Simulated scan of single mutants.
Amino acid sequence: MRESEVTKEYRYTCLMHGECIRVYYNLEVIVFLSFRIEALYTKSFREWIFYSLGKSQNRILDCDLIIGEYSSFDLN
């Protein structure tokens, strides 16, 4: 993936700081990184993802299978 394909910059003028740039990331990238980074917030986000997917599809997800698929990717 190229950064330009998964991000969008929004430039605006702020009274306190002058020109500011806000970067928005694709949801797919955020989900991917949540499986690569070990932190309390990413763990909560992963749990929310599993809960939301399970609730929307009305079936139990095999979490180990999904984690196995994402853990095979490498950011390097």
Rank of each mutant, 00 (worst) to 15 (best):
C20A: 10
Y24V: 02
C14P: 00
I21K: 11
G54Q: 12
L65V: 09
I21A: 05
V23G: 03
E5K: 03
R46A: 04
L27V: 10
I66Q: 00
E9V: 10
K43Q: 14
K43F: 12
G54F: 03
F73P: 00
F35Q: 05
C14R: 04
I49P: 00
E69W: 08
S4T: 06
G54H: 00
D64F: 02
L27K: 09
E9N: 10
D64T: 08
E9T: 07
E69K: 11
H17E: 13
N26S: 14
G18Y: 05
N58H: 15
I30H: 01
D74V: 08
S72C: 12
S56R: 13
S56H: 12
H17K: 14
Y25W: 04
F73E: 09
Y51C: 01
I30S: 01
R2D: 14
I66H: 00
M1G: 11
S52F: 04
Y25V: 05
L33Y: 09
G68Q: 06
F73N: 10
T42H: 03
K43D: 11
F50A: 00
E3W: 08
R46H: 04
F35A: 05
S34T: 01
S4G: 04
C20T: 06
E3K: 09
E69L: 05
C63P: 02
K8L: 08
K8H: 04
L33M: 13
E69Y: 11
E47A: 07
I67Q: 09
L65A: 12
I49L: 10
R22D: 07
I30C: 07
R59M: 08
T13K: 10
I66K: 00
D74C: 12
V29N: 01
L65I: 04
N26F: 09
L53R: 06
F73H: 15
K55T: 05
I30M: 06
E47Y: 07
R59P: 01
R36H: 13
R11H: 09
L40Q: 13
R22F: 11
Q57D: 09
F35H: 07
L15H: 15
D74Q: 12
E38A: 14
Q57F: 15
